[in-house]
């Protein structure tokens, strides 16, 4: 038990020194399997911090290739990576930060027909996607599979996140259905301050590590929102709803749905 090498003790010393993490917590981190969905603005800091933290197995899902316009915020990729599959570029950065972690890549987009197979092998899921259809798909799949996950979304100067743990409020307890396609702009249409991705993504990474180690209180039943223009952070209390269409008493969402994506989303997938 606790057979850390000299290299690991040194690498993770700042975690081990923490009373709340210690050797026991670092062992849990090493044993953990986390799935990061999206290797973009949010997925980049999440995947990098989780690799640095020594999460034993990290899965990363993205069907896209690196585009020059990504580099303003997707700090896991660099200029020579333009044109390469994002999951390959991400894996390279992660393993160069920490060769001890195993990175599993899924060069694909998440759909109703593959999401359950992918999330099955993981203890915790991080939503780092940029559109509503996939956010609902991740929520629905995780609720159905009983997987905890971190929701994250950013736009312009704002971000929002909460953490789902079975038994607590899910995304559909807050938002019943996705907005109509193109009713709400995505980052690619409306823009986003690059550093916002880092602000939100690092909160998601911290929530992931808190879940793994059992330290502190998660953002369950709480939606954290911030506006970087004023640097106002708000925590809104939310509750699991009896009439939630997914996790309520009489669910109407009983199978996974591929919602229609906005035109811009589809275009951005082709890049």
């Amino acid at each position: 038990m606790f057979d850390f090498t000299e290299e690991e003790l040194n690498r993770y010393s700042r975690h081990i020194l923490l009373k709340d993490v210690g050797v026991e917590g670092q062992e849990k981190i090493r044993e953990a399997k986390v799935l990061v969905i999206g290797a973009g603005g949010l997925g980049a800091p999440v995947a990098m911090y989780l690799a640095a933290a020594g999460v034993g197995t990290i899965g990363i899902v993205d069907g896209d290739v690196v585009d020059l316009s990504n580099l303003q915020r997707q700090i896991i990729h660099t200029t020579p990576d333009v044109g390469r599959p994002k999951v390959e570029s991400a894996k390279e950065t992660m393993t160069s930060i920490n060769p001890n972690v195993k990175v599993v890549t899924y060069q694909d987009f998440l759909r109703a027909d593959n999401v359950l197979d992918i999330v099955r092998d993981y203890d915790f899921v991080v939503d780092g996607t940029d559109n509503f259809p996939v956010k609902f798909l991740i929520n629905d799949a995780c609720v159905m599979a009983g997987k905890p996950f971190s929701h994250g979304g950013i736009l312009r100067f704002e971000g929002q996140t909460f953490t789902y743990v079975p038994g607590h409020a899910c995304y559909r307890c807050m938002f019943k259905t996705p907005p109509p396609a193109n009713a709400v702009p995505t980052c690619s249409q409306a823009g986003v301050l690059g550093a916002i991705a880092g602000m939100l993504g690092t909160i998601q990474a911290a929530e992931t590590l808190k879940y793994i180690t059992g330290v502190g209180e998660l953002l369950t039943d709480k939606l954290l929102t911030f506006n970087a223009k004023t640097m106002d952070f708000r925590k809104i209390n939310v509750r699991r709803r009896d009439n939630c269409p997914l996790c309520g008493q009489n669910p109407t969402v009983t199978e996974l749905i591929d919602y229609e994506q906005g035109v811009c989303d589809l275009a951005s997938h082709k890049n």
Partner: peptide
Amino acid sequence: CPMTFVKTKLKLAQ
């Protein structure tokens, strides 16, 4: 320092 206390914590955990 800080490996002194890191090693101590490792042993205490074991």
